[in-house]
Design a protein around this nucleic acid. Structure first.
Lengths: 200, 200, 200, 200
DNA sequence: TATGAATGAGGATTCATTCAT
DNA sequence: TATGAATGAATCCTCATTCAT
């Protein structure tokens, strides 16, 4: 007996709710202090149901880390590594990234944990690491282009990209309780400096 | 009957061993996956003995975070915020910091965890936060001086300091498995850029 | 999906079994020497299940003390404080009480422990104390009535009631291993004396 | 090297202090919640020293129960079972007993526990039981004499004695927090009734 | 599919007791 | 004799996971 469309919809919705609550709680209280029972309660389902949608706690954690990544990845990679005016594109990119990071508080807490315990969380870490490489790579390309055009001082573009992503994650770690995006914006010029724009 | 000096020494040594093992394991496997039994075994003592030296697991964790801080704090603050040649002092400072951070792998993993779950680890977090403020403050002073002397471009010195400490921590997070200090050194010029040195 | 009636019945039965075993063991071996594991084993359930029915050991103890009280209270208060023939009613009451106390061995051991450590067992003690006051009060009323009617010598009715309940509990303490109800019956006339019946 | 008298005195004193503290704490908090460490601390000695004076915790408990008994036994048996005026002697005895029991709060809490868990505390219980039999026996003799003299109504003297000791212990249990000896005195006439004095 | 009772492995902690100093 | 560090058995409790309904 196939499920009706309405039923499929309802189930999707339920899965979504559980995942959102899980992200919230994993980020806030960590893996161990987040119990399946608490997630279930916060989601308004029985804890048995959590196992209907996620094989086990590790899978739930994996999904909590990896699924948002797909969304955020797109936003973070939304810049043109072939742009003509490299510096302008970089500035647009940095501004967008800063804005995204300032609003990511919950999710990035999760990311930091995964990185911190990458032995324990090998699988989600692999995904994050893969994205990080893609991310750095694309930024590196843009930087390289800017250097070739003479708009940026010549330095190792990959290191510049790594310094840049490190600054982003470091700010997120340090400004733990500062959702105030105005303050975040102040860091745009500092981030730009890492790329060595000429005449600034 | 007071303990003999030899006794006292032996106890100090034992406490030290336990703490070192605890730091290692907390950093590697996190708070929850580090059991007292494992720490005891790694330290070559019975688990009951751990409780002789540390009131409970939370206190052990606290000590693991806070005691090394006292040592590292001194190293990290070892620069002159009144130096005449600001840029030279900054470069020396940055080089030293990069070196220190490159060797901190274990301890900084711990730090990242504490920051990530600062709700859970409120007390050690408070200590880290206090140090961070001192650290940023002293760097900010040096930057301010450089700006007054005209050696640095004028920007908000506190934000510069925050960007700098963020870069350091972000590098540590991103370069999780890179104890290679040669690679770390490459980041010195990028860090310097955050302070806006003129004519570089 | 609500539980079926049969399920609910089974659970009630299981809870009952656990509680009975707990009463038995708490009475026999005391709070500390009664482990959850032993109670579980005696009840034929896993020890995890005990926590399904009782929040923790203290709650189990509380239930073990308070739930039987509801039953016994009714039996003990089953006399008429407005009876016409006071002495006859008192004799009936005393006979009933003696019989009840003679059969209470297990439960009263528990009661004695709670009273003995009323600091430690504050909550169950409060319940017992409340019942004791009700019990004494009702007896006192009957005694007062008898005195007004001239059937009993005039003494403080409340002290008489306290002396009576003390005798009951004292007998239970002293005759620890005497379930022999024939012997208990012999104490009826002594108990009656406390009320000062005229012409006996 | 024999110990000096002063040293022997000091040790006796220390043992005494430990025992007093132990009685206090066993009575107040029970066997299990009274730790050797706490007793040692309250006594101003190291917990190792407790083991110098008492073989182990059980022996300490045994001493706490049995040693005071030797003192109290003498007081409780201080009446003349051959007295000419039986009723007067009984009244004197009851008055003395009530007074003693009213002041025994701590010790009798201990006694009640031993009786309550006589399986667990078999050895101290045996001592208490032996004393109880002696105590009842001597009272029984006096009662028997009074009956022979026609001063008391004829009833089973042993049951009367048991009823009497039960009333004493029951009062002690019930009046847990009433050190007020004035109130206790009110129970003298009730206790007397148990012996069936003629013409009262 | 949804529920929640049942299970038991795992872990922090307490504390009597031993024993070296 | 006095001390207190060392030990590890014992116990409460949590929680992921299974499975009958």
């Amino acid at each position: 007996m196939p499920l009706s469309d309405a039923q499929v919809q309802k189930m999707k919705q339920k899965r979504e709710t559980i995942l959102e609550q899980a992200i919230q709680m994993f980020a806030e209280h960590g893996y161990n202090d987040t119990t399946i029972a608490k997630v279930a309660k916060a989601s308004g389902v029985s804890f048995g149901s959590v196992f209907t949608y996620f094989e086990n706690k590790d899978q739930l954690f994996y999904a909590a880390v990896v699924e948002p990544l797909r969304v955020y990845a797109k936003e973070l990679l939304d810049f043109d590594s072939n742009a003509e005016d490299t510096v302008a594109e970089l500035r647009k990119m940095v501004t967008a990234h800063i804005k995204i990071f300032s609003s990511f508080e919950t999710y990035l807490r999760l990311v930091v944990q995964v990185i911190g315990y990458h032995n324990r969380f090998a699988e989600p870490f692999a995904e994050l690491d893969a994205f990080h490489n893609t991310f750095r790579g694309k930024i590196g390309e843009l930087v390289k282009k800017g250097q070739e055009q003479g708009q940026l001082q010549v330095r190792d573009a990959n290191y510049a990209a790594t310094a840049y992503t490190s600054l982003l994650i470091g700010l997120r770690v340090n400004l733990t309780d500062s959702p105030d995006s105005q303050m975040w914006e102040k860091f745009v010029p500092f981030a730009m400096q890492l790329f060595g724009p000429k005449g600034e």
